[in-house]
């Protein structure tokens, strides 16, 4: 069982990406489970779950630094015993710091494939400049293996390039992928990366 963490600020497109990734990874022959904060928030209907063999579990609430991490560990352990998925996609709360989840997961010997952090290109001015947001956004981006620039179809090439430069400065280590759920850009690239890493692992 391997873990894929999808993080990012509220409204950055995490849920959409998760559904698309879950479908693609299922079609590629993986048994996929999804952990979310609130099942009701994720529009996966029964038919889709059945068709793709998806398991969706709640993480529950609590303090982002400990209760959520503890809850996630408990749920992951149960999933490993019962459903035995190949890949678990985790969507922590929009305030979560991905690194703290990675630390806890390592200690229970579950391999983490990647941390994907979404960055909403169309709201970059707010995310990078509002004093009440930039600290959190920067903390999340620094933990990313892949930064997915989301909603690139909503902005000009200059705007997308500006976002790319900005996130590169925050995390020069991360691979940056341009994502548009509307046009379907980027999903295949992310799936391919996951599969390459998964095979190597």
């Amino acid at each position: 069982m391997k873990l894929l963490q999808i993080a990012g600020y509220l409204g950055s497109g995490k849920t959409t990406l998760i559904i698309e990734l879950a479908r693609s990874l299922s079609e590629a022959g993986n048994k996929v489970a999804i952990l979310v904060n609130e099942i009701g928030e994720i529009p996966v209907d029964g038919r889709v779950m059945q068709d793709y063999g998806l398991t969706v579990k709640d993480i529950g609430g609590g303090c982002i630094c400990c209760q959520v991490v503890g809850s996630m560990i408990g749920t992951l352990k149960k999933l490993a015993e019962s459903q035995k998925p190949d890949i678990v996609i985790v969507e922590p709360t929009g305030l979560a710091v991905p690194g703290s989840i990675s630390d806890a997961v390592k200690r229970i010997n579950i391999e983490q494939l990647l941390i994907i952090v979404l960055f909403d290109t169309s709201r970059q001015e707010k995310l990078l400049n509002y004093d009440s947001l930039k600290r959190l956004i920067s903390t999340q981006l620094k933990d990313a293996d892949i930064i997915a620039l989301s909603k690139v179809d909503l902005g000009s090439e200059d705007i997308v390039e500006h976002a790319l430069q900005a996130v590169s400065r925050i995390n020069p280590r991360a691979r940056i992928i341009k994502l548009s759920s509307k046009r379907g850009d980027g999903i295949l690239e992310i799936v391919k990366t996951i599969q390459e890493i998964s095979v190597k692992a």
Binding site: N37, E38, G40, D58, I59, G60, G61, G62, Q67, S71, G74, T75, K78
Partner: peptide, 16 residues
Amino acid sequence: MNYYEDVEGLLYPTVK
């Protein structure tokens, strides 16, 4: 609130 009364395992309540 959501108390997760019907969910297996320990989950802290969330504001829904």
